[in-house]
Design a protein around this nucleic acid. Sequence first.
DNA 1: CCAATTGATCAAGAGATTTTGATCCCTCTC
DNA 2: GAGAGGGATCAAAATCTCTTGATCAATTGG
Lengths: 109, 109
Amino acid sequence: MRAPTPTSITGERLAELCHALSDPTRLHIMHLLRQGRRCVCDLTETMDAAQSRLSFHLKTLRDAGLVSDRRDGRWVYYEIRPDALDALSAALEALRPLDNGAGSGGCCP
Amino acid sequence: MRAPTPTSITGERLAELCHALSDPTRLHIMHLLRQGRRCVCDLTETMDAAQSRLSFHLKTLRDAGLVSDRRDGRWVYYEIRPDALDALSAALEALRPLDNGAGSGGCCP
DNA sequence: CCAATTGATCAAGAGATTTTGATCCCTCTC
DNA sequence: GAGAGGGATCAAAATCTCTTGATCAATTGG
């Protein structure tokens, strides 16, 4: 019995993931993290952003589960969690229109 | 000469798409639209939400290009634009870690 | 132990989003 | 053309989000 990748996520969870990615600063961080783990001081320097600002955005990404952090001595390294991207992709695919007949089974013609 | 599916989108555009999907009400709308086009009065009734509220969120989705609207007589029908989901999926894939060696070519050990 | 470095956290202010109710515009029906 | 239904828009209030600067906790090097 194992619980590997959750096959589907809730609407709340999808909203949380999308919110985390809805900010240019956070997307910039994600883009930098594509190349592998990076410490905060490195990101701060590369992005020329205030440290508390970065810390805020990193926390947002971490709370959403999109990145993980790990302390190593003096430094804290952040890293992308691909499983979160998996879940996000799957949830977005589940938003695609069903290809049954045209919709509007509702109140209108 | 044609411009079919834009192969990649800007960070700003990705942020805009994610922002549009970062709200539970809007995700609810998207979910209902999966079954096909629907008029606003239908959504209003199904979701039990104020009409101006829905109108606001539909505008947000439309401005982001995630849905299209079409007037037919008295009614305005909204519909998902799958091409926007294509662009979003592609952009999210482009956020995945590169599988070159471990990162941190930066300031730290 | 002392001082410097790294990073989290907090409080306050600026700015953006959402909700609500009112109002307006369009289209259809009578 | 008067009235009703469907939707968009607006202004005000309530919330959320982001930025900034200050402070605090850990870690390390001297």
